[in-house]
Simulated assay, not measured.
Amino acid sequence: MPVSAAPPRWYLVSLRPQGGHEALRRAAARRGGALVALSSCRLVFRDDDASRQALDMALASGLAVFTSPAAVHAADALRPLREVADVRWIAVGAGTAAALRRAGAADVAHPARMDSEGLLALPALQRIAGTTIGLVTAPGGRGMLLPALQARGARVLRADVYAREPVPLPVHAIARLRTADAPLAVALSSGEALSRVLARLPADAAMKLRGARVLAASERLATIAREAGFDDVVIAAGPRPSQLAAAAGFDRD
Rank of each mutant, 00 (worst) to 15 (best):
L122E: 05
I133P: 02
G130K: 11
P111N: 07
P123R: 01
A97M: 14
A138K: 02
A97Q: 04
A91S: 10
R142I: 03
D107M: 03
A124V: 10
V136P: 01
L135Q: 13
A103N: 12
L125Y: 00
G95D: 08
G118R: 05
H110V: 05
L122P: 13
G93W: 06
G140N: 06
A98E: 07
V136T: 00
P111I: 00
T96C: 12
R101P: 14
A99P: 04
I90T: 13
L122S: 02
V136D: 00
A121C: 04
M114N: 10
A105T: 14
L120R: 00
L122N: 13
A121T: 08
G95N: 15
A103G: 11
G140I: 01
S116T: 04
T96K: 11
A103Q: 11
R127P: 08
A121H: 11
T131G: 05
T96A: 11
L122D: 06
R101Q: 08
A121N: 03
A124R: 10
G93S: 06
D115Q: 04
A105P: 12
R113C: 07
G104V: 12
A124E: 05
G104I: 11
G95Y: 03
V136H: 02
A129C: 06
R127D: 12
V92T: 10
A138C: 03
V136Y: 00
R102L: 15
A121R: 03
G93K: 15
G104S: 02
R101A: 07
A99R: 14
T132W: 03
G134L: 05
H110A: 08
G104C: 12
A94F: 12
S116M: 02
T96V: 07
V92W: 09
V108D: 09
T137G: 01
A91T: 15
V108L: 10
I128N: 01
